[in-house]
């Protein structure tokens, strides 16, 4: 009886996930295969003529191979800013959690205000200009890292509080300095939460639209989300090319997910049990 109900639930879950994930994705693929006029109907139908290859070629060639530049830029942006977030957030969270001091209240307040206070565009640009980082990928990496850091610190702090202090003490007794204590003892223990942070923040940074739009102007600086606007404008949208572009920029994260699927799931579930 119990087993029957369980398999029932499983089937329902599979059907729901088909509707939520596979139907939209197949719609993207179908529309990407159509010609412009047919795609304009936005209907869920089998294409009458196949233009997938033409569409792909056109999308890649648009505006001097902007998509290729954009994929490189987005990869560098995502990898670098997520690396900064993971490293800095883990360090901050470790110190905040393990060493109580009178500054903790203020630091916690600053971390929280990073979550609460919305970022302002013009002052941020002014700061970047002052540092000579405006219109550079480095500047945007720092912006993304700054905006994501608060959230990551909170995640890491909550996780570090579950690691027994005895682990630290044992390492210190064995002669580990503070740097080694962090990098060789604590950091590896954070694996599951690191994977969570990487997944969540990579998706956020890779899909970010407004920050690149304002902080990294210029065609040579485009990121993938900005390339969508080559085909979608206020009055006229080429749905076939737009969906082909979506398809092309969805592939890299998808491939990543397929390759690291095991680690991600293992990391998250081990985190769930521990936390």
């Amino acid at each position: 009886m119990h087993a029957v109900r369980k398999s029932w639930l499983g089937i329902v879950a599979i059907i729901i996930s088909i509707f939520v994930f596979l139907v939209p994705f197949s719609f993207i693929i179908l529309t990407a295969m159509k010609g412009k006029n047919e795609a304009g109907f936005l209907s869920f139908s089998w294409p009458t003529e196949f233009h997938l290859w033409d569409n792909i070629v056109e999308v890649i060639q648009t505006r001097n191979f902007m998509l290729v530049t954009a994929l490189i830029n987005s990869t560098v942006l995502t990898v670098a800013s997520v690396a900064i977030m993971v490293l800095l957030a883990a360090m901050v969270a470790f110190v905040l959690q393990r060493r109580a001091s009178k500054w903790n209240g203020l630091i916690n307040f600053l971390v929280l205000s990073g979550l609460i206070i919305p970022p302002a565009v013009v002052p941020t640009i002014w700061v970047l200009q002052g540092l000579g980082l405006f219109k550079t990928l480095g500047g945007l990496i720092l912006v993304e890292a700054a905006f994501g850091l608060s959230f990551c610190i909170l995640l890491f702090r909550a996780f570090i509080s579950t690691i027994p202090r005895e682990v630290d003490e044992a390492a210190i007794i064995d002669g580990a300095g503070s740097i080694r204590l962090f990098f060789q003892v604590v950091f590896p223990l954070l694996r599951s939460v690191i994977i969570t942070v990487i997944v969540v923040q990579s998706v956020a940074v890779f899909n970010d639209f407004t920050n690149p739009l304002y902080f990294l102007p210029g065609d040579e600086n485009a990121t993938v989300q900005l390339t969508l606007f080559n085909f979608q404008s206020q009055f006229d949208t080429s749905w076939n090319l737009l969906f082909t572009n979506i398809l092309l920029i969805t592939i890299p994260p998808l491939v990543m997910f397929i390759f690291f699927n095991r680690q991600i799931v293992a990391g998250m579930s081990s985190g769930a049990v521990k936390g």
Binding site: A80, I84, L133, G138
Partner: peptide
Amino acid sequence: SIGALALVLTGCSNSG
């Protein structure tokens, strides 16, 4: 990793 970061930060700062 610091070197890689520095590269990323400076290497792309050609202001055109």
